[in-house]
Amino acid sequence: MGDLDYIFAVARIRVKEKSLLSDADIRHLIGLPDAKTAAAWLEDKGWGTGDDSGDIDKMLKAEEDKTRELIRELKIPSSVMEALTFQQLYHNLKAGIKQTMDSERHYGIFYALDDYGEEKMLRILKDKKFEELPKHMRAAAAEAYEIMLTARDGQRCDNIIDRACLEAMIASGKASGSPLIRDYTESTAAVSDIRIAVRAQKTGKNAAFLREALAPCAAFDVKELASAAAKNEEALFSFLNNHGFKEAVEAVKDSPSAFERWCDNRLIATIKPQKGNPVSVGPVVAYYLARQNEIRTVRILLTAKANGFSEEETRERVRDMYV
């Protein structure tokens, strides 16, 4: 599909953008006394099904369903949106591998996906029929499964799957034909690599661990990042400063939550130019990502309120909004 084939979809999205939460709305939510009041305020703005009875999880799930339904209605080709579904798909793979190794059944750890939901994923893994998985998942699934089976090394299992996910996202982003998805998947890989490097440096992981965990991306050479993170904090900060990630260094120095916030805000900054794009699939993708960011921010905010965090502590954790 060409850029002009998305005119109808973009026009609908422009109207929908009016109901996205703004930074001012988030500040208002932070100022509300408790999670119940905040949930009620969101319900007044149309969040949830109108019959959630204060159940926050139900309300947030309803919002996720609404976004998915809208994208389905707009008939955006699956090849375009594919890259954005990989994180949930690979999450289900991780959950599936860990569940098959555990005699105790865990509930609510899978995303309800149409193609690779809980039941199908568990059946594939129990039968070791990796060929039934998407092509880009098979090798990582077999390797991660083997590692969990033989070494019970959950962290290595996660690293292998996360890296495979990022590599698949980048490949799909390039194939999508959308500059936004290509840039977003590249940014996601770069931010994820930085996140892994920062955490690995703090926990004293070696270069071999980092080389296995980091996914190649366009922003920098991951081997150099691995060497810097394995050396010491100063080398890592110097690497990040030299590659245009000065704000990441400042966020790491500030606090872990400030760093997590920077990671998400960096991705939102990638999609913000779509607010002025009148055609192409870009604004639709940007809206989808903005909704995910919005729901994630509300979840963080309501959880913080439910756990009695102060306004200042809550403010530190909330993300920039798209509008």
């Binding site: 002009l4 005119i7 109808f8 973009v10 026009a11 999205i13 109207v15 929908k16």
Partner: peptide, 14 residues
Amino acid sequence: GMAGQAAAGVIAED
């Protein structure tokens, strides 16, 4: 035609 598609998109929501 192009403007009509955009107009229809807006009317669908508002």
